[in-house]
Amino acid sequence: MMQPMKTLEATIFEAVGLRKEYDGGQVQALRGVDFRIAKGESVAIIGPSGCGKTTLLQMLGALDKPSSGGLFYCGESLPDLPDLSAYRAGEIGFIFQSFHLLPTFTALENIQIPMFGADLPASDRTAQAMTLLQLVGLEHRAKHFPAKMSGGERQRIAIARSLANGPSVLLADEPTGNLDSENARIILDLLVRLHEQQGMTLVLVTHDMTIARRASRILRMKDGRIVFDGNPGTTDSIP
């Protein structure tokens, strides 16, 4: 089994020669990716469509397993963790481009959905969901259904949902991709605020350089490889 490099204590993710292939190797989504992400870091993964950034996010969220190479979470091989559901439920908060709220549930109820993996009394779930609604400034929309909310509001509900189990890492896949610029700014401010206030690691996938510059570090991908790894101040050198 591949071993992590001699890691710093603060490393949360480490990828060593990470590969992902589909269709028996005909499609190579990741072609040997190496990186290290520190705890509390905010990282933007950018690159053109099909470069492998969503595949990489899938690997980090344990939604899929690598074909080869090593991927480590806090020094442990992530694909070999004994309970991947528990990892997704407790360590990871997912934010999707299309929000993926359940249409027949109110805002307050949608936030409670991830909590059903844990053994929480209904009253605690409701109270916790209400606190999260307040955190994203939508407590007045608690009983509204997603269809009656704007895109920005839906994404704020989705962000509140991602925080339901107090994750260490937020993984956001094009979180502003379906929003107008004003709502995109609000969502980005919210994510940055959450990252700063709660010390969570933030990994976001985007194709928008303006958004990527809000992160403390940028990984640029091309053809399944990382072609740039640096801070936003050095983006002029991005290939």
């Binding site: 559901s85 407790g90 997912f94």
Partner: peptide, 16 residues
């Protein structure tokens, strides 16, 4: 299908 996959991504176990 996608809703179920989202539930799995949010930490629901397949048994649930």
């Amino acid at each position: 299908k996608q809703e179920i996959s989202v539930l799995l991504a949010l930490g629901w176990r397949p048994g649930l």
